[in-house]
Simulated scan of single mutants.
Amino acid sequence: MTDNQVVQIGLQAFEISMKIAAPVLLTALILGFIVSLFQSVTQIQEATLSFVPKAVGCGVALLLTGNWMLHEMTTYTTRLFQSIPTLLGS
Rank of each mutant, 00 (worst) to 15 (best):
I9Q: 08
V41W: 11
G57I: 00
T65D: 08
S17Y: 12
A47Q: 13
I34E: 00
A47T: 14
A55G: 07
I44M: 02
A55Q: 06
F81P: 03
V6Q: 07
C58F: 04
A21M: 11
M1E: 06
T42P: 00
V56P: 02
K54S: 10
L64H: 09
L37F: 09
Q12H: 12
G89D: 11
S83W: 00
G57F: 00
N67Q: 14
I30N: 04
I84V: 05
N67L: 13
S90N: 08
E46G: 01
G59D: 06
A61V: 06
S50C: 12
L11P: 00
S50F: 11
L37S: 06
L64G: 09
T2I: 10
T42R: 00
L88S: 03
A21H: 05
K19N: 14
L62E: 01
L70Q: 10
A21N: 05
G10L: 01
V6M: 10
M18S: 09
T2E: 10
F33A: 08
Q39C: 05
V6L: 13
A28D: 06
T65F: 12
V7K: 08
Q45C: 03
K54G: 08
S36K: 06
L49T: 01
V56S: 03
L88A: 04
V41T: 13
L63R: 13
T77F: 04
N67A: 15
L63M: 14
I44Y: 04
V6G: 04
